[in-house]
Design a protein around this nucleic acid. Sequence first.
DNA 1: GCGCAAGTACTCGGATATAGAGTGTCCGAGTGGACCGGG
DNA 2: CCCGGTCCACTCGGACACTCTATATCCGAGTACTTGCGC
Lengths: 165, 165
Amino acid sequence: MKLSEGVEQAIHSVAMLAGLGSNEVLPAAALAEFHGVSTSYLLKHLRALTDAGIAESVPGPKGGYRLAKRPDRITLLDVVLAIEGPEPAFRCAEIRQRGPRPLDKKFYKSPCQINAAMLKAEQVYRAELRKTVISELLVGSEPELIEAIDERECWFMARNARPQP
Amino acid sequence: MKLSEGVEQAIHSVAMLAGLGSNEVLPAAALAEFHGVSTSYLLKHLRALTDAGIAESVPGPKGGYRLAKRPDRITLLDVVLAIEGPEPAFRCAEIRQRGPRPLDKKFYKSPCQINAAMLKAEQVYRAELRKTVISELLVGSEPELIEAIDERECWFMARNARPQP
DNA sequence: GCGCAAGTACTCGGATATAGAGTGTCCGAGTGGACCGGG
DNA sequence: CCCGGTCCACTCGGACACTCTATATCCGAGTACTTGCGC
């Protein structure tokens, strides 16, 4: 059980896009440079976010990415599912009916207890992720840290954010 | 985010071992046959369970596996961690400090909000898995199903379970 | 007949190949601005 | 000087290699039973 690194990149990117002014976009290359990751690889995940309706892309020069929804309407779960896919982590392969003398099919209508327990845990997991929205992520604990982060991001935004007509 | 299939095999195997009488063992080959999976691969996971103190192995002819603890003392989380490893699914690579103009090191003492939120969700997930113990898995909803499963398992046990002197 | 010892069959244990998904990269399609020529 | 057309630079989009983990397999170490021999 391991989430792909793309999830971390995607969440950070979404958080960054949340700091954009209205009618501003940020190119994928800038996001990649800011986080020190591969541009082409990040593009793949940004596209996944676009397909999921979280971000939207503007092609051409002066183009880039921006959020498609308000930051307080995007949950961590939305981003995770966009990158990792909607399927649950635990897939019951029904190995209980693969051995010798399998029971009658009618008995396998309801999922086995193991599957139910695992899925229940994952529902709780997802519910917890659903509680956190992107806009919450910006509030840190220490004022100094917030200020430093804001200063750095603003500096970078001023260099890379581009107004969209 | 995908749990390995070994997790499912391990849980089913532990549940099966829970049905053994005292001083009885079940060979890995029998467990593999019952679930229709590869014997050698299941052995790897059974060894992981042994290393984790969940099961114990008896070598030699008439040898096999049995639980090392009472079934009501083994949680689903124990099995999952034994197979998947103790590391959390979300590993923060601290990409926030990899770009240009990184902040002073002192600011990165505390984990970022994203990491905190993801880890919190995983704690909830684990807590939910901890609630379920192996012995609970045997109780199904429909009496007929329980009877049929018991009948099949007893038949298989009679064929493969081996008393240990 | 009894005891002992070597052989054998069966078990788990660890090291070794293979497959698939995650990771990283490249080239092509599309778009907006810039430049140049004509009116 | 103003307008239109062409060219170009920059963006995203999708198709193509590489790498690492999960999967599957094989061979070796150890043990209890079996069997044969000697006493």
